[in-house]
């Protein structure tokens, strides 16, 4: 009953503060949209240099596949690759085509490989697969990194905005004196925390659904698994962010100090959650990711969205996220003791 009072109040406040409501829903969509423009934009038109020994038919087929084809000698091609005026150079090594890629831009690599494969496919539609020798000037053919962006970004934006809004609104409760007012009532500490979790929970379910739908259906993000699982994970991430945000707000004196938690709490999670490859990092540093909620959220979202996996592959992440939320909630109830022992 009393918890319900808090829940109703929080939801009412949300719909009164249109800007925050908008920020929670449209800001993540907007940023995802920008990311979409930057990374997926127009189909990339690769510049491919072709040696004289490549058969004319192949050159014609390449030209058809939207590639920008130039006849160059091997010497010139080397230079142009280094200067990034060419994305790739194609020559024949006996009967096997040999492709050299500049390699630093995953988008370009993908486009080149597609063009070349298409070109050869159209020449030999038989089932014999194309034997292609590829070498990279820079980088490697590991482009999964790029494919991994989407799910991590969805998780990140939900986490970030919920953390900030929940933290600030709980902080306001303190600075406005309403927390003290609440603590002058027979309300128990856990009831305040529960009220916040449920009130925000209802709202974040709505927010997470909209954002996931937008990313998957409108931005056409790769989606192999079940949408319901995506909702489950984004909901749990939001819960973790909410409980962490309200917990940390106890250690901030004003909104600005709440924002100071972003570089301390949020930004490190971007680096460790799998957006960037951790293989090259020192093992002890890599293990830092174990304590970061976003690691589990991002991992689960990737399992669902990219690998199309189900419950058995995300169960562990789900339990960990639930554990984080519960832990933060309990700490929250304890932290409120600072204001009233009972």
């Amino acid at each position: 009953m009393r918890v319900r009072a808090i829940v109703v109040r929080i939801i009412r406040q949300f719909f009164r503060d249109k800007r925050t409501l908008g920020l929670m829903i449209f800001a993540p969509m907007f940023v995802l949209f920008l990311m979409h423009l930057v990374f997926n934009g127009e189909e990339y038109k690769p510049a491919i240099g072709v040696n004289q020994d490549v058969p004319n038919v192949v050159v014609e087929a390449l030209e058809k596949s939207k590639a920008d084809v130039k006849q160059v000698t091997r010497e010139k091609a080397k230079d142009q690759l280094h200067e990034q005026r060419l994305d790739a150079f194609l020559e024949m090594d006996g009967r096997i085509p040999k492709l050299t890629l500049e390699g630093s831009d995953p988008t370009a690599n993908k486009a080149v490989l597609m063009s070349v494969q298409q070109a050869f496919q159209s020449l030999a539609p038989q089932k014999e697969t194309l034997k292609l020798k590829t070498t990279y000037l820079h980088g490697s053919e590991d482009m999964k990194l790029f494919d991994n962006f989407g799910p991590v970004l969805i998780g990140f934006f939900i986490f970030f905005f919920v953390f900030l809004i929940a933290g600030v609104s709980f902080l306001r409760e303190r600075t406005n004196g309403t927390l003290e007012r609440l603590l002058a009532t027979p309300l128990q500490r856990w009831e305040i925390v529960a009220g916040y979790v449920i009130g925000f929970g209802i709202f974040t379910t709505f927010q997470a659904s909209l954002i996931s739908w937008f990313a998957i259906d409108i931005l056409d993000m790769m989606m192999e698994g079940s949408f319901l699982y995506v909702l489950l994970i984004t909901f749990l991430l939001a819960m973790t962010a909410l409980t962490l945000g309200t917990l940390l707000s106890a250690f901030a004196h004003n909104e600005l100090q709440m924002i100071q938690f972003i570089p301390l709490v949020i930004v490190p999670q971007i680096f460790f959650s799998g957006l960037f490859n951790l293989e090259t990092m020192a093992p002890w540093l890599r293990s830092v990711s174990v304590i970061m909620p976003l690691t589990y959220g991002a991992d689960a979202l990737r399992e669902i969205m990219i690998r199309g996996n189900g419950w058995s592959d995300i169960a562990f992440d789900v339990y960990i996220l639930l554990g984080f939320s519960l832990l933060f909630m309990i700490l929250n109830v304890i932290a409120l003791k600072k204001y009233r022992r009972l």
Binding site: R9, R12, Q13, N176, R181
Partner: peptide, 8 residues
């Protein structure tokens, strides 16, 4: 302080 919710 007036412990009230200004939005409401």
């Amino acid at each position: 302080s007036d412990a009230l919710y200004g939005e409401l």
